Simulated assay, not measured.
Amino acid sequence: MWLLLIRKYLCIVILLLCIGNKNTDTLITDSLSIYDNHPTLKISEAKHLQWVDSVLGVKGVKLIDCRNGIYQYDDTRFYWNRTFDYFLVYPSSFTHGEESDLSNGNHFVNEDSTICLNVYATYFDVFKDDYSLHEWFDMMIDSEIEQGNRIVKKDITDHSYAIEGNTKGGRCFYSKATCKKSYERDIIVTVKLEYTDSKKEEARAIICLYNSISDEYTWKDISIEWTK
């Protein structure tokens, strides 16, 4: 009984550290780094882009910021996290941040910081012997409430959850966590959008874009759309 409570406490601490810090560079660096078998390739920009084109199945991807995983294809700006193999399309007018020391996420803001977009990934298979996915989702949602955020809408499926509400500081927020496979590992990718009430329309467009791509498309599908 005590062992289970201790494990749950440690999981909540890790979760709060990931959510509460934009750069997610925390004390859990050592515990996650042992699973990182995909270091950044030290190659020329030309060879890197040649590799990117071959992986994504398109030609002409532009490298915006290699260190922080920022690319562009035509008018589409996207963040590609190569360590966990997920991506996030975001408005090209947004400014990107620095990828975390754990290489698990990044953050983006519009010009006046009225919209903030955060994304990060965590390994779920480390904990799945102790928790079901639904239990882990419940813990993540509980952590939002513990931070003082008010949840007004919640939707949980077999592999994801989405919540909406207001932050302690009075902003609106939308958060979605999705469990997926990456390099034969089970990971959870979490996206959180915070915005002022005056930016609700713009924020809703970003949410719709993210959901349409993350739920219905793979890189192969997007490549087909891009080349039409």
Rank of each mutant, 00 (worst) to 15 (best):
V58S: 04
K59N: 09
K59Y: 05
V61A: 08
K62F: 04
L63M: 12
L63R: 08
I64E: 14
D65Q: 07
C66P: 03
R67L: 14
G69E: 00
I70S: 02
Y71E: 07
T76E: 13
Y79E: 15
N81F: 05
N81A: 10
N81R: 10
T83M: 02
D85P: 00
Y86L: 09
L88T: 09
Y90F: 15
P91Y: 04
P91G: 09
F94W: 02
T95A: 09
H96Q: 12
E98T: 08
E99K: 04
S100M: 07
N104W: 02
V109N: 06
N110P: 03
S113R: 06
S113C: 08
T114H: 02
C116K: 01
L117T: 01
N118F: 12
N118E: 12
V119N: 09
Y123S: 05
D125V: 02
F127I: 01
K128N: 14
D129N: 09
D130P: 03
S132E: 13
E135H: 13
D138H: 08
D138G: 08
M140H: 11
M140N: 11
I141F: 06
I145T: 07
I145H: 05
Q147G: 12
G148N: 09
N149I: 08
R150I: 05
I151C: 07
I151P: 04
D155P: 02
D155K: 13
D155L: 12
D155V: 10
D155M: 10
H159A: 14
H159Q: 13
S160M: 09
Y161E: 03
